[in-house]
Design a protein around this nucleic acid. Structure first.
Length: 829
RNA sequence: GCCGGAGUGGCGGAAUUGGCAUACGCGAUCGGCUCAAAAUCGAUUGCCCUUACGGGCUUGUGGGUUCGAGUCCCACCUCCGGCACCA
């Protein structure tokens, strides 16, 4: 009895795959490229190399690898590369703490990922490997920056930015969560700094529209992106302050409520505030208010049940629809970042304006009748946000607010008092970071020529070695004086380099293109290679990247397509978002001490067990709680398969099963074909790996049940052998080592070179079916019936059943439902 | 508040088109093997009543449609995720 020894089996196959470079695929034009073969680009999000891989990685790559194997065996040329998102804050923070250069810690972690990916047996094309922190890679990140700069899609401007005092860097809006730094949890403050941005807002509409081009993305991911982009249609309407000869445009989604505007509010950051109050009695109070708001964090300001605050300006503007003069206020519930930083306040139909009006005793005016004025809410059901006929609205009275909507906008537009307008929640992408461990921005500042992009032949701008990584409010690179001082490429005069580096999301927004031609030192990629492989046919990764990474990659793909570098509008045709694995019901974290190290489990049970387990825990798109007993169960199953193989190899000879088998041999063959059919459909129907694996478990169980009665008979031997080899073939995408081992021992062939098995319809069908007999919808009997039995025969069987008789005797059958091949329901009274 | 997703045994979960609820795995109980244990092989395992035969109940709650509902419709409750003073 040899037993299941994953260590031996796994290292044996890993050596075969490494030596034969089994998973490497050629590009068009390279030797071995087969034009006739359809391509499939299967990609998992590249890991951020920090420390050791965790179970989230194991799950992601186990799922992706299963898909890659499945596609290969369906005749696809599968490209399945790997790389490392190796710039970023954790390595740099570690450097500040320990003095160890970020490169050293990063490369140590990369080595650990490489080793584990090989130990897990992931089918990676290692010839395409990349790491974003190498000059060979970031040279092209810089090249992309320059292309965007040429197009005006990369620009520098002074802006109020989110600043993390702890990390001493600017953050993207996306990296601020509840007013705190996403990474370290420190409260973010506002600062004004000159920063680089990518003009992603130019692409807002296309990012929305092109969801239609995607083949299959999870609905909730699309929804999250849609919410993030936050498109709202409305109108821009101009309110005029005649006294000071100033126009204040506002954005509103409710031009139908314009007649209800009873006051007007500016954001504390509004640039005209100064002019409005300078030298006026309100000046001091307003200043104090603005200062106080400025000291508050975004979190405090956005707090949910916060009472409205504000100060009157002592000025007024004219409502363009009715000429009414309405007072102006400054209040922090109006945000400078959205719309125009000023609003018309309609307390009758907006809850925030209503609250403010109540507090400051301002008039509240109804301009839309509710269907039921007595309905909930104070004072005649206000604020009312529903639809209804308009009132107190001059010429529009009596019209439905929806119908009047466009009419009002057109009426205002006719004499330049307003126009239709669209607003987005999405802001431009802030890409500069006052940090060391990132790709330098390829720009120099010349006294004479100003901001000058470096020519392509001066790339890469290499990251200099420095001693002190601690940020001092500017990039640590600023301290590298020799590096900063350079020559202007335009006039040859003295210039200094940009010392900010790029957000690491820029690195990871295009890596899937670089894989296609990762050794190219002449260009970022070869067009033929990119055109052949793109788009990614199946992308796999955690839902935590649903917004940031995926939207940035979509944006960059479109921008690159627009400048003729790519032929696709969307990078990822199909997306699979895996769920998170928890432990004891909680997210794993070092501080909580509930982490699971995949390495330990691979060591104890083998990679096949660890991989199969994460695919078996539940539907992969959902999360699941890690269970050591569950791992043991999967290990038990693989051991059972391994032992079955030992026994079958010893007791049966090679031979194909005949078609016309009978009895238990046929029963086992039928189960094998059922498992093929079930596993195949589970793969195709959204990667339901848990049930695909359970089908293989059932097949192995059936083989155990029947084997002893089948050994010794030619047909019986063939059936057991076929069933076992089939189980190996079907489990291979999850447990590639054991799958290869068992398949080879029983068939002499390499399972990954064999096509995915096909179920034989003749063996899926059965001569008899179990007829379900119900009386009044309740199950009363099960009867074996011929599969072809007629309606009448089935009814006869049902009526004559003893068990059924007890429930229909003495009663009248009022209805007979027959579902051929399945069920009879007798309705009695 | 708005937008998604989910509620099924002791646990993870299955049920494909409205037709056998609880597949598969875990856990538990019993048995074979063993001096013994582990491993392993096999049996049982939703709940309640019944010695048994058998019967009743059961998919978050309450209604509805249907011969028949975990699945469809209406109302509600709970949990998870995202967004949120976005005008």
């Amino acid at each position: 009895m040899s037993g299941y020894d994953p260590k031996t089996i796994e290292s044996r196959w890993q050596q075969v795959w490494a030596k034969e470079k089994t998973w490497e695929v050629p590009n068009p034009g390279q030797p071995g490229f087969d034009e006739a073969k359809p391509k499939a680009y299967v990609l998992e999000m590249l890991p951020y190399p920090s420390g050791e891989p965790h179970v989230g990685h194991l799950k992601c790559y186990a799922v992706g690898d299963a898909i890659a194997h499945f596609r290969r065996r369906h005749g696809f040329e599968v490209i399945h590369p790997m790389g490392y998102d190796s710039f970023g804050l954790p390595a740099e923070n570690n450097a500040i703490k320990t003095g160890e250069p970020p490169r050293v810690a990063t490369e140590r972690s990369i080595a650990s990922f490489q080793r584990q990916f090989r130990e897990w047996g992931i089918s990676i094309d290692w010839s395409r490997e990349l790491a974003t922190h190498t000059p060979e890679y970031y040279r092209w990140t810089q090249w992309i920056f320059l292309r965007l700069f040429e197009q005006g899609l990369a620009y520098r401007t002074e802006a109020a930015v989110q600043w993390c005092p702890k990390d001493a860097t600017v953050l993207a809006n996306e990296q601020v969560v509840d007013g705190r730094c996403e990474r370290c949890g420190t409260q973010v403050v506002q600062r004004k700094l000159a920063q680089w941005f990518f003009r992603i807002t130019d692409y807002a509409d296309r990012l929305l529209a092109d969801f239609d081009l995607l083949e299959s993305w999870p609905e909730h991911v699309i929804t999250m992106q849609r919410n993030w982009i936050g498109r709202s249609e409305g109108a821009e309407v101009v309110f005029r302050c005649a006294e000071l000869d100033l126009d204040f445009p506002v954005f509103t989604t409710r031009p139908d409520t314009l007649f209800g505007a009873t006051f007007f509010v500016l954001a504390p950051e509004h640039p005209e505030l100064e002019r409005l109050v300078a030298g006026s009695p309100a000046e001091t109070v307003v200043r104090e208010y603005v200062d106080r708001v400025g000291r508050e964090s975004a979190e405090e300001r956005g707090a949910e049940d916060r009472e409205k605050t504000g100060v009157p300006l002592g000025r007024s503007v004219v409502n363009p629809v009715n000429g009414e003069e309405i007072p102006m206020f400054v209040a922090d519930y109006v945000l400078m970042e959205y719309g125009t930083g000023a609003i018309m306040a309609v307390p009758g139909h907006d809850s925030r304006d209503y609250e403010f009006a109540k507090k400051f005793g301002l008039p509240i005016k109804r301009v839309i009748e509710g269907e039921d004025p007595e309905a909930a809410g104070d004072e005649e059901g206000l604020p009312y946000s529903g639809d209804g006929p308009m009132t107190n609205s001059g010429r529009f009275d009596g019209k439905g607010n929806r119908e009047a909507y466009e009419e009002i906008v057109a009426w205002l537009a006719a004499d330049q008092r307003g126009r239709p307008s669209v607003n987005y929640r999405l802001r431009d992408w802030l890409v500069s970071r006052q940090r060391y461990w990132g790709a330098p921005i390829p720009i120099v500042y010349c006294e004479k020529c100003g901001t000058v992009p470096l020519p392509d032949d001066q790339l890469p701008v290499e990251l200099p070695e420095i001693e002190d990584y601690a940020p001092q409010g500017k990039s640590p690179l600023a301290a590298a004086a020799e590096w900063v001082a350079t020559e202007c490429p335009r006039c040859g005069g003295p210039a200094r380099r940009e010392t900010d580096t790029m957000d690491t999301f820029v690195d990871s927004s295009w890596y899937f293109i670089r894989y296609l031609d990762s050794r190219n030192s002449e260009a970022a990629w070869d067009r033929a290679a990119a055109d052949h492989w793109l788009p990614v046919d199946q992308y796999i990764g955690g839902v935590e990247h649903a917004i940031l990474h995926l939207m940035y990659a979509r944006f960059l793909t479109k921008a690159l397509a627009d400048i003729g570098q790519l032929d696709v509008q969307e990078p990822f045709a199909n997306l699979f978002a895996q769920g998170m694995i928890t432990r004891d019901g909680a997210k794993m974290s070092k501080s909580r001490g509930n982490t699971v190290s995949p390495g330990e489990y691979v060591e104890r049970y083998g990679a096949d067990t660890a991989r199969t387990y994460v695919c078996f825990m539940g539907p992969p798109e959902r999360g699941g709680d890690w269970s050591d007993e569950g791992v043991e169960g999967v290990n038990r199953f693989l051991s059972r398969l391994s032992r079955l193989c030992d026994e079958v190899a010893e007791r049966t000879g090679a031979g194909e099963p005949r078609d016309a088998l009978g009895g238990e041999a046929r029963e086992l063959l039928a189960k094998a074909h059922w498992a093929i059919d079930k596993a195949t459909r589970d793969f195709q129907r959204g990667f339901q790996f848990n049930t695909a694996i359970s089908a293989v478990m059932e097949l192995v169980n059936e083989a155990y049940r029947l084997k002893d009665g089948l050994y010794g008979d030619t047909d019986g031997d063939a059936a057991v052998r076929f069933a076992t080899a089939t189980a190996a073939s079907l489990i291979f995408p999850f447990a590639p080592h054991l799958g290869s081992e068992v398949f080879e021992r029983l068939t002499g062939e390499r399972v990954w070179e064999r096509p995915w098995p096909e179920a034989d319809p003749a063996l899926l069908a059965s001569d008899t079916v179990t007829l379900i007999v119900q009386v009044n919808g309740k199950l009363r009997d099960r009867i074996e019936a011929p599969a072809e039995a007629s309606r009448e025969q089935l009814l006869e069987l049902a009526r004559t059943s003893e068990k059924v008789g007890a429930h229909i005797d003495g009663k009248e059958i009022v209805k007979e439902i027959v579902v051929p091949g399945k069920l009879v329901n007798l309705v009695v009274r």
